[in-house]
Design a protein around this nucleic acid. Structure first.
Length: 847
DNA sequence: CTAGGGTTAG
């Protein structure tokens, strides 16, 4: 009925045609019908009505350029596929039958229509055809053409048009200039945009807004804000709501809450209209700044009735990982009668995949099918991601196979899905065969390799990505690589990555900063770690934790405690993780009293309930300090059942103190709780060996043998000229083994000469003394040390990473080597650093 | 005639 109503509102002329088959009732062409043309066109809401209108025009012989232009414009406005092709029909007809007299009006109309309907290629082709037909463009033609070029990133065509503008002397027109600024900005040519902008003799709001928006859309949000302030100082121009939407989105990009607040305050005081666009932008900004409470308040204030606003809320919740909240918004939205659109569904499906909730995921899929949203490839991509994450590969591939235009995102969802399902090989194969890769593809595969502990492979891929494919890394890439680097303890590479970040202007936010602090601390460079930490603004608890851990690992317990206190003073709420860092620091530094105070403050002052790791830290702290009885009592007083990790802490403490009874007791408990835990046997046999109780030691070894347990092999890494060399205890496969052996002999002789006595109790095998000495001499850290000495320049620091605790013989050996060869040796074991120089170690032989 | 928010994959 509604449609019929709109037909009835048409001019009498069209009404006549719809209601009658007889042509004799057609009105004669008159002034009245001409006046009615415009308004009746506006009332045409369907393609059929437009066809009838056109038909009547032809019958009446009204083929004026103006009317045809209006008809084309209206057809395009309807925006459907049919209406656009009808516009083309009318256009072709007019080109053949209407006396255009070189007029560009019809062309303008269709170029504009194509551009605004997203058919940018057609718009550009039409523009070029117009040039070839010798029809002169007017000042309206250029903005339409440039808008098409901007939308489709047709840089070369845009530049051509710019040339034409100069040639035909339209370069002084304000609208043309604005379009040029927008075109260049949209194509990422900010410098060109700025050049046009700077040369303008007169600028209006649109000029400023286009430029500001250009900066905001690329990662130059700071320039956007700066330019806005410059605009405010210009008396000839006043920002409007479009300008403010751009400025708000710049604040969102910068995650600058303070600035965002100021901008919002300005909007309210200036009386600029707060429209729906702006509310969405504000909500988005507040959520990107993690000020969800303010966003929520705005949301509640302006109401759910706005679909776009709901979408902004939901998508940000999804981004923050708050999937329940995202789905909540969508539910509230549906309750108030708003149908979710495809953007809403992206958030909904993405929530389901984050939650791994196949049930909700399937129901989203159902909604998508019922509403015909599956034709949009983004929706398919989201569905593929969801099914892959829910381990339904078959369902994912059913969608994948049906997709007509698979994009790079589609392929990325597949490789990420394979990784998620543990099929890294399949991911790698797909990665190598996919038709197009972007930075996300590379990041997916690099992070998969890092997750699989294939650090060197990850770095290789990272290097070939840039050298062979010319792809630039982003913040996500360097996060993965920094993590790989930290695991390898590769300091040179670490420094290079830091340099890379600075050189390429990769934004160093808290997350990346924290990763770098961690990287440098794991590479044995606590100074660089701290200088990055000090440069960070907006430090969160994780950042502080990384700094505290850096100090703890390097043995600076006091500094670690200062950092902890500083963090509390700044009003941050500590979590369980930072307490582990603080307690570890106390433990390494022997700060018993402080450790106890911190532990006691956890629940009372900070409301963080101690978990078993924290109890473990305390047992470690007490045990290392020789307070074994107290440690044992502490375990007995625990509110939960002590696990094997806690008993192992006690055992380790007993080893340091040489307390056989407690060691045996702890080892017994571990064998009940975790019989496969090899390390405890090794520790216990060490304790017996130190006490000279060889029989007991033999028993431990025997029981290991019976259970088929072997000490896991020690491995050590060292980087020489960017290449990682890995040595395993007793392994002789290194190509330079003869030279390494010669070097080992040389150091051993020198060390023995200075009083080194081999710590034979580190050898658990039942072999003769000579064999023991030999086995000891082939420990992985010694091999790495010897190789380092022969293959690096004199005086440079040797950096070695070991997978297990460093053995006491190797520790002593390293001290001698540092003195004899005048080298600093940095040795990282599985829980701390040893900085060894001139025969002394930073750990004070307490580890 | 020119300028605007929300868009899946790491």
């Amino acid at each position: 009925m509604a449609m019929l109503g709109s037909v009835l509102h048409l001019s009498p002329m069209v009404l006549t045609i719809t209601s009658s088959t007889s042509r004799s009732f057609l009105p004669k062409q008159s002034e009245r019908t001409k006046e009615a043309t415009s308004s009746s066109l506006k009332n045409c809401k369907t393609i059929d009505e437009l066809r009838m209108f056109h038909h009547s025009l032809t019958k009446l012989g009204d083929v004026s350029v103006t009317t045809i232009t209006k008809l084309v414009a209206r057809s395009c406005e309807l925006g459907t596929r049919e209406s656009l092709s009808f516009a083309k029909e009318v256009f072709d007809y007019s080109e053949a039958n209407v006396e255009l007299n070189g007029s560009c009006f019809v062309y303008n109309s269709l170029i504009r229509g194509y551009a605004s309907a997203g058919l940018c290629k057609d718009a550009i082709l039409l523009f070029l055809r117009m040039m070839n037909s010798g029809i002169s463009p007017d000042k309206y033609t250029f903005p339409f053409g440039l808008s098409a070029c901007a939308k489709s990133r047709a840089n070369r065509n845009g530049i051509q048009i710019h040339g034409l503008i100069v040639k035909l002397d339209y370069a002084k027109d304000l609208f043309v200039q604005n379009s040029l600024v927008h075109f260049y900005a949209e194509c990422g040519e900010l410098d060109c945009a700025r050049k046009v902008f700077d040369k303008m003799s007169e600028r209006n709001v649109v000029s400023w807004t286009s430029m500001i928006c250009g900066y905001a859309r690329r990662d130059l949000a700071k320039d956007a804000v700066d330019l806005f302030f410059q605009m405010m100082r210009d008396e000839n121009v006043t920002p409007n709501s479009v300008t403010m939407v751009c400025v708000i989105s710049a604040c969102a990009k910068l995650e600058d809450l303070e600035m965002g607040d100021k901008v919002y305050a300005f909007i309210r005081s200036s009386g600029i209209e707060v429209n729906d666009f702006m509310i969405s932008a504000l909500v988005d900004m507040y959520m990107k700044c993690n000020a969800n409470d303010i966003a929520k308040r705005l949301f509640d204030q302006y109401g759910v009735r706005n679909l776009d606003l709901c979408n902004a809320m939901a998508s940000n919740y999804v981004r923050q990982g708050l999937t329940k909240e995202a789905l909540g918004v969508l539910n509230v939205m549906m309750d108030s009668g708003i149908r979710p659109d495809r953007i809403s569904m992206l958030s909904a499906i993405s929530s389901c995949s984050q939650l791994r909730n196949i049930l909700w995921g399937k129901s989203c899929h159902g909604y998508v099918l019922r509403n015909g949203l599956e034709s949009w490839d983004n929706i398919c991509n989201a569905l593929i991601d969801m099914y892959m994450k829910c381990h339904r590969q078959d369902a994912a591939f059913r969608i994948f196979d049906q997709m007509s235009n698979k994009t790079v995102v589609t392929w990325n969802s597949i490789i990420a899905g394979y990784v998620e399902n543990g099929e890294v090989d399949a991911a790698w194969e797909t990665f190598n065969t996919m038709p197009e890769k972007n930075i996300v593809s590379w990041n997916t595969i690099i992070s998969a390799l890092v997750q699989e502990s294939m650090f060197e492979e990850a770095i290789e891929v990272f290097i070939s990505m840039q050298s062979q494919e010319g792809v630039n890394a982003d913040g996500v890439t360097v996060m993965s690589i920094a993590s790989a680097c930290g695991h390898l303890g590769a300091l040179d590479l670490a420094k290079w990555i830091y340099y890379y970040i600075e050189k390429n202007g990769i934004q160093l936010d808290v997350r990346l900063g924290t990763t770098l602090v961690d990287m440098f601390s794991r590479c044995g460079d606590p100074e660089s770690a701290m200088s990055i930490f000090n440069s960070l603004t907006n430090r969160d608890v994780s950042a502080w934790t990384a700094a505290i851990r850096a100090m703890a690992m390097a043995g600076y317990a006091k500094r670690a405690m200062e950092l902890f206190n500083e963090m509390i003073e700044q009003g941050l709420k500590p979590d369980g993780v930072v307490f582990v860092g603080a307690l570890t620091a106390c433990s390494h530094g022997g700060l018993v009293q402080q450790g106890k105070e911190i532990f006691n403050s956890m629940e009372k002052l900070h409301g963080v309930a101690p978990e078993d790791v924290h109890y473990g830290c305390m047992v470690d702290l007490l045990g290392r300090a020789g307070l074994l009885e107290e440690a044992l009592q502490f375990i007995k007083d625990m509110p939960m059942e002590p696990n094997d990790v806690i008993w192992n802490s006690l055992l380790a403490g007993s080893r340091v103190q040489g307390n056989v009874e407690i060691a045996a007791y702890a080892a017994e408990r571990i064998q009940v709780l975790a019989p496969e835990r090899t390390g405890s046997y090794v520790l216990l046999s060490n304790v017996y060996a130190s006490a000279g109780r060889w029989n007991d030691m033999a028993k431990v070894r025997l029981s290991m043998k019976e259970k088929g347990l072997r000490k896991p092999p020690g491995t050590s890494l060292i980087q020489i000229r960017g290449k990682t060399h890995e040595f395993t205890s007793g392994d002789e496969s290194h190509p330079e083994m003869p030279q390494i052996e010669a070097m080992l002999d040389e150091i051993t002789q020198a060390a023995n000469h200075l009083g080194h006595v081999p710590h034979l109790r580190n050898v658990l095998m039942d072999v003769d003394e000579k064999e023991k000495i030999f086995m000891l001499s082939r420990h992985s850290e010694k091999l790495a040390m010897a190789y380092g000495l022969i293959s690096s320049n004199k005086g440079t620091t040797l950096r070695i990473v070991k997978n297990l605790r460093v053995c006491s013989d190797c520790h002593s050996f390293a001290k001698f080597a540092s003195k004899v060869y005048n080298r600093e040796i940095v040795l990282r074991d599985n829980n701390r650093f040893h900085f060894i120089r001139q025969g002394k170690c930073s750990c004070g032989d307490y580890w």
